[in-house]
Write a protein that binds this DNA or RNA. Structure first.
Lengths: 209, 209
DNA sequence: GTCTATACTGAGATAGAC
DNA sequence: GTCTATCTCAGTATAGAC
């Protein structure tokens, strides 16, 4: 059957979202999908490449939407810089909307990030968007020293990855969760302030110990 | 020999730092340490508990120093709130100093976070410090709505974990790396601005308080 | 109390018949 | 394309030697 591949993808997506990548064995996937063990390696090559396809088939439209929003913003600005807030919205809102619509997708993405599996094909794919976003932010912050900008972009990436993928109730029990859209809006406020902060002087000597 | 345990710990620390936790097999560790396979389970019980001890023997002094700095700050303030910057320094500087002194420790911590292994004993141990820090930050930000505060604490955690553990050159080639101390100072500026930012209006919300 | 040798179970991967 | 059988290697468990 030709839908063997689809059954594998759907079952893998569900199980990885529920239990995590490492905790999901190929034998569990084939058992629930009703296919043969070797068919996974026939269609995907390896467990890792199966994960790549699970991610990519959902990430492709999100990244396309991000690029489309950036195109629109830059066209509207007509050569001027797009604001930090707007760039962050273009980056984060498409993901938040999908996250609220398809909780299973964000579960897999969360597992992927929290298990440290952002590498290979998936990483390269996201870097297309990343490069565009960083370039737009750089234009919005022309006076920020280059090193400071690079570090702040790094901090943003960390806050972003963690926010999308780690439930805050694990760290702070009692935190109400709400929609992804809402948490992303809060994140944008936080990150934008960080980007626009005055540059802190870096002390040269050691601390009071 | 009584130092079998030490040899295992040292070798595990090195290999996990170099290759990651998942990619380091117990058989690699025993081979390089020159001990028997079963001795790992005799001394530690399991691979996961071995990781716990590798982390803990370095994390304990760092966390002690963090608590000591918080104690000192709060004593100096004499009942008044300690500033956001100061709390963040108490949390982050001890780690930065150890990171610059012992690169192997931060390599292991980085692997631990990037492979999503913050659970069990290690997590509980860090949460003692986390609770103190969040309480101090809450007092420094009395006017911030509770939900907003919790989310911002969450964003900070993400930026922190990512900053300590992911080399920025992986994401943005060409970024000069510098000392951990320096990057932590930049991080404090970024995070403090995020905490002190005006509260952004949430567009379409039902707040679950 | 420590360490060694060895066996058990389950993982991902692969070769070859159909 | 699919399936059976098998391979290698992982973490784990245990019996028994010093």
């Amino acid at each position: 059957m030709i839908d063997t591949k689809q059954k594998i993808l759907d079952t893998a997506e569900r199980l990885i979202g529920e239990r995590g990548y490492a905790a999901t064995s190929l034998r569990q996937i084939i058992s629930e999908a009703g296919v043969n063990l070797a068919s996974i390696h026939y269609h995907f090559g390896s467990k890792e490449e199966l994960l790549d396809e699970v991610i990519l088939r959902k990430a492709v439209p999100v990244n396309a939407e991000r690029l489309a929003r950036l195109d629109r913003l830059e066209a509207d600005a007509g050569g001027a810089a797009v604001s930090v807030d707007q760039v962050l919205e273009a980056l984060l809102m498409p993901m938040a909307e999908v996250a609220d619509r398809e909780p299973r997708f964000v579960a897999v993405m969360g597992r992927m990030i929290s298990e440290g599996l952002i590498h290979g094909i998936a990483e390269k794919h996201f870097q297309v968007v990343t490069a565009r976003v960083f370039a737009a932010l750089r234009r919005a912050l022309p006076d920020l020293p280059e090193q400071e900008f690079l570090w702040r972009a790094h901090f943003m990436t960390g806050a972003m990855a963690y926010t999308m993928c780690v439930s805050p109730s694990r760290v702070l029990p009692g935190t109400p969760v709400g929609s992804y859209r809402e948490r992303i809006e809060r994140l944008i406020g936080f990150v934008a302030a960080g980007f626009l902060a005055p540059v802190r002087e870096i002390s040269q000597v050691e601390t009071t110990k």
